[in-house]
Nucleic acid binder design. Structure first.
Lengths: 228, 228
DNA sequence: CGTTGTCTTGATTAACCTCAACAGCGGTGG
DNA sequence: CCACCGCTGTTGAGGTTAATCAAGACAACG
C-alpha cells in the first residue's frame, strides 16, 4: 500500500463518485477530503482483515475487491465482489466495531480512506449524511438477500447467468472482477462447476469466453436461462 | 389486526425491551411511545407485504414472524424468522422506501408501530438514535452473512443442528418459531429433507421431537455434528 | 527450466430434490 | 355425528445436481 499526495480537488472528485457522498455540497466534500488519505493497493494486497478495529471508512474508487470470511475449518467464503466506486465495511466503521470480514484486492486498487472521526465530524455538520449511508447499507442488505435467495433456490447455471447479466449492465463485454475460483466461491460453486457452467453457456451460444473476458453474444439466450 | 389502548407506561416498557431503544432516557421513550400504536395480530395475519411504502417502524414485542420474498415464479423464500423483541424492516422505514419483503405472523403477535415521522422527530432530539438503529442493521447484515456461509458450505444436517443450537441459547427445550415447512425454507431445504434431518438427529440421540417442540437431549452430540 | 497457481476435463459419489402416497388434525356442512 | 376437505408432516423410490477426487494443460515467474 502506498499513500498518494493528490492535487487539489482530486480527492473531492473521487468522493463525488460515491453515491453516499453525491449529495454533499462541494464545501462539505472538501472538508471530508481534508481528513482523508488517498491510497493505492496492488493486486493481492489486503485492505483490512477480519477482527481488526474499523478505524476508517474504505471508499473503493477504482479496482475490484473481494470481501471474504474465514470459517473455523479454514475455508473461505466470498461474501461480496465489489467494483469501485463503492463503500466497503461502512457498518463496522460507523458503529465503531471491528471488521467482520477481510478485504483483498483482486486488481490494483485506488482507495480513499476516511478516518472514523472525520466521518463523525462531517455527520455532525450534515444531518443527512447518516441517512445516505444507511441507504448504502440497505442496498447491501438487499444484495445479500438476493444472494441468499439465489443460493437456495436456483441451479448453478442460473446463478452464473444472472451474475453475468448483473455484471454487464447492458454492456456486451465484461471482465470477471476476480479469479474464477473466487467468482465460483461467491456464487456458491466449486471452480470446476463454474467452468462447466460457462462451457454450457458457451455451447448454447449465449456467451464467448476468452481468459477472464466474457462477451455476451446472445443476451436473450442468457436471460432465457434465468426462467429455468 | 386490532389496535389496543395500553395503560400509561406500558408501551414505554415494551420499547425498553428493544436494544435499539434501550439506551434512551425514560422521557425520550415516553415521547416515542406517545406517537406509537400498540397492535395485536393473529397467527397468519400479514403485518406488511412486499412493495408497500414503509410508513412505520414495526417493533415486534411478542410472538414470531416470518419475513419472506416472493419470486417471479411464485415461490417464496423465507429470509428471516424473527422472535420478539426485535425490529423489523428498519432500513426501508428509515430511508423512506418500500418494504422489500412481506412479514407474516407465525404465532399471535404483539407489535408497537412507530410512524416514520415520529421516529425522525425523535432522532432530531436524540442524535445517537440513528447510530443505535444502525447497529441493529449491522446485526441483521451479519445474520445474513452467516446464513449465506451456511447455505453455500454446509450440509443440511449441519444447518439444522446449528439452527437448533442458535434457537436454544442454552435452554434445553425450544419451540420451532414457525411451521416446519417455513423452517425448512429458511434453512434452504425442502420440508422432506428437514423431516429426515430431524429424524437422523433424533436417532443419534441428540434431540427429541414432539410436534413443534424440540428437546435438546445431548448438546455435545448436537455440537459434534457442526464439525462435519 | 522447474515451480507454482489457475483453470479445465473426466469419472465417481453423495446429498438433496422431485414425485407420489398416506396419516393426522382441524374446520365445515349436510 | 360423520363424511369431506384442506393443510401439515412423514415416508419411500428414483433422479439430478453439483461436490469430490484425480490428472493434466497452460501461463507467470524467479
Amino acid at each position: 500500500m502506498k499513500t498518494l499526495q493528490p492535487g487539489p480537488g482530486v480527492m473531492s472528485g473521487y468522493l463525488a463518485s460515491l453515491s453516499a457522498f453525491a449529495k454533499l455540497t462541494g464545501a462539505e466534500r472538501e472538508l471530508l477530503a481534508a481528513g482523508a488519505y488517498l491510497q493505492s493497493y496492488d493486486k493481492g494486497e489486503l485492505i483490512f482483515s477480519l477482527g481488526e478495529p474499523a478505524r476508517q471508512l474504505v471508499c473503493l474508487v477504482q479496482g475490484s475487491v473481494r470481501v471474504y470470511r474465514v470459517k473455523a475449518d479454514g475455508k473461505e467464503k466470498v461474501i461480496h465482489l465489489m467494483r469501485g466506486p463503492a463503500l466497503i465495511a461502512q457498518a463496522p466503521t460507523l458503529i465503531g466495531g471491528t471488521y467482520p470480514a477481510g478485504a483483498e484486492c483482486t486488481t490494483d486498487c485506488l482507495v480513499v480512506a476516511i478516518p472514523r472521526q472525520s466521518l463523525l465530524d462531517a455527520a455532525a455538520g450534515q444531518p443527512d449524511l447518516p441517512w445516505h449511508m444507511m441507504a448504502g447499507l440497505f442496498e447491501r442488505l438487499q444484495e445479500l438477500t438476493r444472494s441468499l435467495e439465489a443460493h437456495s433456490q436456483q441451479s448453478g447455471a442460473v446463478r452464473v447467468a444472472s451474475f453475468l447479466i448483473g455484471l454487464g449492465h447492458d454492456r456486451d463485454a465484461v471482465d470477471l472482477p476476480a479469479a474464477k475460483k473466487d467468482v465460483a466461491n461467491y456464487l456458491g460453486l466449486r471452480a470446476e462447476s463454474l467452468s462447466r457452467a460457462l462451457k454450457a453457456l458457451q455451447a448454447a451460444g449465449a456467451i464467448e469466453v476468452t481468459e477472464r473476458q466474457i462477451r455476451i453474444v446472445d443476451r436473450g439466450c442468457l436471460e432465457g436461462v434465468l426462467a429455468e
